Computed example of a mutant assay.
Amino acid sequence: MRIIPATIQHIEAVVDIFCSAFESSISFFAPVNLKLKKAFKDVFTLLHLVFGKGFMVAVMGDEVCGYIVMADNIKRLWLGTVFSGFLVKMAAKAIFGAYCLNLSTIFKVIKNKLFYMKFEMLTISCGQLLSIAVLPRHHGKGIGKRLLEAGINYMESRGIKRIKLEVRPDNTPAVRMYEKYGFRPAGRAKDLQGDWLIMVRECS
């Protein structure tokens, strides 16, 4: 199993992993379908454009079985979203039905993102683990740990002194993994689906 920088060719596999790993959370807004996957593909393409080598995948043979996205500077994501025209393009696609989202669902997504922005404003500015997931059939093989190690090493190579993340407090396996790698509880945040536990790691 190898951890390598993601390429554009990996994005569709990453979307499939994301949808498999977070299906219940996604379904809170809309059922997973091909049109919705197009929206996620656009989002992950932007993350790849903005964060480059901070976006990594775990590969076994020819199969992408996990990924991680590390943000060394979250402000670059907001700037990239606005100045690349991404926000306008996504809004237009959503309105004209490319993602199969109705206005009620779009409102819920926007409201949820406002909760996320509040989380960003209430926590110290630092690097961030934006997303990590492993295909369910590959759980228990240590892939998540390898991805997390690679993500931490990348951030330290960039001179990042502090990394934060948010995880559902009832996701005990994930919380324990993060604690093993030096992340400690630093507060709570909330969105439409419930509480988030904010964890922070001080880098060497």
Rank of each mutant, 00 (worst) to 15 (best):
V88Q: 15
V88N: 15
V88L: 14
K89Q: 13
K89V: 13
K89G: 15
M90A: 15
M90N: 12
K93G: 07
A94Y: 00
A94S: 03
A94T: 00
A94H: 02
I95P: 05
I95D: 05
F96N: 10
F96G: 08
F96M: 10
F96A: 09
F96L: 10
G97Y: 01
A98S: 01
Y99N: 01
Y99M: 02
C100K: 13
C100G: 09
C100I: 07
L101K: 03
L101F: 04
L101C: 04
N102Y: 01
L103E: 10
S104D: 11
S104W: 11
T105L: 05
F107Y: 13
F107W: 12
F107I: 12
F107G: 10
K108M: 06
K108T: 04
V109P: 03
V109S: 02
V109I: 07
V109A: 05
K111Y: 13
N112T: 00
N112A: 02
N112L: 00
K113D: 14
L114N: 13
L114K: 10
Y116I: 15
Y116G: 14
Y116R: 15
K118M: 01
K118E: 03
K118W: 02
K118D: 02
F119P: 13
F119Q: 15
F119C: 14
E120I: 06
E120L: 06
E120T: 04
M121N: 10
M121K: 14
L122E: 11
L122C: 12
L122N: 12
L122V: 09
T123W: 01
T123D: 03
I124P: 14
S125I: 13
C126Y: 13
Q128W: 14
Q128T: 09
L129G: 03
L129T: 04
L130W: 06
S131G: 12
S131C: 11
S131T: 13
I132V: 08
I132K: 03
I132Y: 07
A133L: 06
A133D: 08
V134C: 11
L135G: 14
L135Y: 15
P136I: 06
P136A: 08
R137D: 15
R137C: 15
R137L: 11
H138V: 04
H139N: 06
H139T: 06
G140M: 07
G140E: 08
K141E: 10
K141H: 12
K141C: 12
G142M: 04
G142D: 05
I143F: 00
I143V: 02
I143S: 02
I143M: 00
I143N: 02
G144M: 00
K145C: 09
K145P: 07
R146M: 08
R146E: 09
R146W: 06
R146P: 08
R146Q: 13
L147M: 04
L147V: 05
L147N: 01
L147G: 01
E149Q: 08
E149H: 09
E149L: 08
E149G: 05
A150F: 01
A150W: 03
G151D: 03
I152V: 03
I152N: 03
I152S: 04
N153V: 06
Y154A: 00
Y154N: 00
M155W: 11
E156P: 11
S157A: 11
S157M: 09
S157G: 10
R158C: 09
I160M: 11
I160N: 10
